[in-house]
Every structure is written in structure tokens, then in C-alpha cells.
């Protein structure tokens, strides 16, 4: 599929990986819908795209809401008349181990709260489902060629302290296989699905963290640095243009390994 002239929708498009994807696609001539919770971020990204001579709309929305999802899909169609690429970047973390023990008694002092579990599942899994589902509906009903891109994570392999996040991201990684299997059953041939599983990426969330802790993380990355959001955007661009890539999850980690050198 050609990027120039296509229409892309990116949730979480107001910062981090989503912002990089939006700008990368806009630079290559795609019309883009920037969907985000933070209006300030949307305004900044849309202004940047205006300055580069691109075409964009900004829609403030909550991806966990079915009504909001319907609204940002319709807004994209109202503005650009079609939809070809949907990238579900919106995501959050609420880390914590499932149980915390009292050091003196050895008994459980605290449990991972349902609020922390539910918030992550709602945004990272249900939000992705709603975006991918409604984008696919628009693509199929419109008869437009399309690519659906759930964003998983290398932590789908299982990360301590992230039972909620890893559970959502492993489910996101499974989506392409199931969705494309169903599309084959239903005779839907012009819409593909490819998930991307980034490793540690230079987003504000990571670059703002304790630099000593970050240094320790990078000791396990073969590349020796964080992945740039633009490198992830470049991979998504490649997936858009190469229609043989389908029904799979592609990792982009720089060679992230477990301590002592087994690739994660």
C-alpha cells in the first residue's frame, strides 16, 4: 500500500511513539488523525504537521470509550473521506507486584489494586480492541485497503511488576493471528493486521526516569541504547508498504536480552 495519499489514524498520537508515527507518516504524504487524551499535545502535533505542510486533524478522545472511538473514526472519515492505517499507540502503565509482604511478619501487607489492573487492561487491551475493531469496520465497509497495527511490547514475554501491562500486551500481540484468520474465513482480503512489539524506547516516560536505573536496563540491550520512536515509526511505514507482512507481531528491541545474555 502506498503511504502517500493514504489516511492514517493514530491513538496516543500526541506524544512518544504515537507522535513519531504520526509525523513520519505525514512526512511521507499521508493524511493523519491525531487521537489523544491531552488536548495540549494534540494542538502541538497538529501545529507541527501544519508547519511541515501536511494534512492532519486532532481529536481529543478516550480510547476506552466506545462512543469516543466511534467519534474519532467518524471524524477521520468526515475530514479525509477514507481510512487506511490504524495504529493503536495509546497505552499506560500502573506498575506494582501482585503481592507485597510485610518485612517483619512475612504476611501480605498489600495487593495489586483492581484499579491499577483495570486501568491498564481498559486502555491497553480494550482500547486497542475498540480502535482496531471500528477501524476495520470502516475499512471493510468503505472497501479501502487497510493495515491495522496494535502496539504490543517486548514485555509480552512477562515482566515482573507488570502483571497488568504484560497481560494486556501479550493479548495485543495475539490479535493479528486471530483477526487475519477471521478475515480469511469471512473473505476479507484487503485489510491486513501487523502488531509491533517495541523494546525500551526513548519516550518521555523512559528518558525521564532515574538515569542509573536506565543505565542498568541498557546493559541488557545489545544495541546499547534506547530505541528511537522514529525507528518504530519507520518499521510501521515498512509494514504499510510491504503487503507480504501480515498476521504477525514484529519485535523491535535492539536485541533486548535477559541478564546473562539470552535474548528476550
Amino acid at each position: 500500500m502506498e503511504i502517500k495519499g493514504s489516511v492514517a489514524l493514530v491513538t496516543g498520537g500526541g506524544n512518544g511513539i504515537g507522535e513519531a508515527v504520526v509525523k513520519h507518516l505525514a512526512k511521507q504524504g499521508a493524511k493523519v488523525a491525531v487521537v489523544d487524551m491531552a488536548q495540549k499535545n494534540i494542538d502541538r502535533v497538529v501545529k507541527d504537521i501544519k508547519d511541515m505542510g501536511g494534512e492532519a486533524i486532532g481529536i481529543q478522545a478516550n480510547v476506552t470509550s466506545e462512543a469516543d472511538t466511534a467519534r474519532f473514526i467518524k471524524g477521520t472519515l468526515d475530514a479525509f473521506g477514507q481510512l487506511n492505517i490504524a495504529v493503536s499507540c495509546a497505552g499506560i502503565i500502573r506498575d506494582g507486584t501482585m503481592l507485597n509482604l510485610d518485612k517483619e511478619t512475612g504476611k501480605v501487607a498489600r495487593k495489586l489494586g483492581l484499579d491499577k489492573w483495570q486501568a491498564v487492561i481498559d486502555t491497553n487491551l480494550t482500547g486497542t480492541f475498540l480502535t482496531i475493531r471500528d477501524a476495520a469496520e470502516a475499512m471493510v465497509n468503505g472497501g479501502w485497503p487497510g493495515l491495522l497495527v496494535p502496539i504490543s511490547s517486548v514485555n509480552k514475554a512477562g515482566q515482573v511488576g507488570q502483571l497488568n501491562y504484560s497481560s494486556a500486551k501479550v493479548a495485543d500481540a495475539l490479535m493479528p493471528k486471530i483477526i487475519i484468520g477471521e478475515f480469511l474465513m469471512r473473505g476479507i482480503r484487503n485489510v491486513r493486521c501487523v502488531a509491533i512489539a517495541p523494546g525500551y524506547t526513548a519516550t518521555p516516560m523512559l528518558t525521564g526516569m532515574n538515569q542509573e536505573a536506565l543505565k542498568t536496563i541498557l546493559e541488557d540491550v545489545h544495541l546499547g541504547r534506547l530505541i528511537a520512536p522514529e525507528e518504530i515509526a519507520d518499521l510501521i511505514s515498512h509494514a504499510v508498504q510491504n503487503e507480504a507482512i501480515n498476521a504477525t507481531t514484529i519485535e523491535i528491541t535492539g536485541g533486548l536480552c535477559y541478564p546473562n545474555g539470552i535474548a528476550k
Binding site: 494542538d43 497538529v46 504537521i49 501544519k50 505542510g53 501536511g54 494534512e55 486533524i57 486532532g58 475530514a79
Partner: peptide
Amino acid sequence: RDGSWDLGIERSGTTAYAGVGL
């Protein structure tokens, strides 16, 4: 703008854009 349209919104005294190149 250049054969298409920019849709601005006034927000706190400045112009933000709901859409550009429309």
C-alpha cells in the same frame, strides 16, 4: 491555504488547529 483549508479554534487567546490541509 494552498488550495485546501485550515480549521482553527481560538483557545486562551491563541489559535490551535482542529484540522489542517482539509
